[in-house]
């Protein structure tokens, strides 16, 4: 009896926590459809007014483009550097292993405010603030540990004998990497790329330091839109941003399902053959 009571309380608590986790994510969508400039809830009447405003104001488009450019570039650089480092971590031998690993993982631990201030001070003299290059350099630091972690996990499960077999069959080390190893760790590489992309796309703290009239990423523009008073257009941007992320997850789920379906068909044909 006591146990049932405890369970019920537990489930109730979990439900409240679940709501607490989810509600802030979902509430922006209906609010962005409100026609009132005070973003009332529930919206008195629905309108796409704030979405229209996004289209009308070219600075939103500019910052979205800047963000996209930075996120794509830094995800690309992260994938290359992170995959190479993962290969070294899993396969290689190098001195000061613990210290090196600590440096590679440090961006996960150092508060972004500190990173922002440090690179701002350093970049100011180099003229790298408010430049795509500056943003890409910093966001690569923040995204690259995720690539490294994902790819390392993937690499550990790759059977070394496959690479040995490839070399025995006449492929050199580089050819073996691209034909055997890379295809096998591709899912991990892609997951790492996605992590790095989203990290950059959402990143606001270091971006606040690096942004200015010449270049402002979208999160920074959203930030200035809500810092002082609430700009309803931010609700529209947030909803769009959510849409992108949710559809990414749905897409990944769909890919997984399709693969499962193919696998199942394959096993059916196998049984026919035997």
């Amino acid at each position: 009896m006591n146990r049932i009571l405890a369970r019920t309380a537990l489930i109730l608590l979990a439900a409240i926590i679940g709501l607490y986790l989810l509600l802030p994510v979902l509430v922006v969508v209906p609010m962005s459809l409100s026609s009132s400039s005070f973003l009332t809830f529930p919206p008195k009447e629905l309108s796409l007014r704030w979405y229209q405003q996004l289209l009308d104001d070219p600075s939103w488009g500019r910052s979205a483009f800047a963000s996209l450019k930075v996120a794509l570039l830094s995800a690309t650089v992260s994938v290359i550097l992170g995959t190479l480092a993962a290969l070294a971590l899993v396969r290689g031998r190098f001195p000061f292993r613990n210290a090196v690993t600590a440096v590679l993982l440090a961006p996960l631990i150092v508060p972004y405010v500190i990173v922002g201030l440090a690179v701002y001070i350093a970049f100011l003299n180099l003229g790298l603030t408010e430049t795509t290059l500056g943003f890409v350099l910093v966001h690569t630091c923040l995204g690259v540990p995720y690539v490294m972690i994902n790819v390392s996990t993937g690499l550990v499960s790759v059977d070394r004998r496959l690479e040995m077999a490839s070399m025995n069959l006449g492929a050199g080390p580089v050819s073996t990497f691209f034909r055997i190893t890379l295809p096998l760790i591709l899912p991990s590489v892609l997951a790492g790329a996605l992590f790095a992309f989203i990290t950059s796309w959402d990143e606001v703290v270091t971006a606040i330091f690096l942004s200015g009239p010449d270049m402002t990423t979208m999160p920074v523009k959203m930030w200035s839109g809500i810092r002082v008073q609430v700009d309803p257009a931010v609700a529209a941007v947030s909803s769009l941003s959510l849409l992108v992320i949710i559809s990414t997850f749905l897409l990944m789920g769909a890919v997984k399902m399709i693969r499962k379906m193919i696998d199942r068909r394959a096993s059916l044909t196998m049984n026919e053959g035997i």
Partner: peptide, 30 residues
Amino acid sequence: LPPHKRGLGMVFQHYALFPHMSVAENVAYP
């Protein structure tokens, strides 16, 4: 000589077939 220049065939413990390639692609690899 590195392994890929020795031209010796080898069959591995647990076969080491490339899982992302078909049987024919595996055999065509060398």
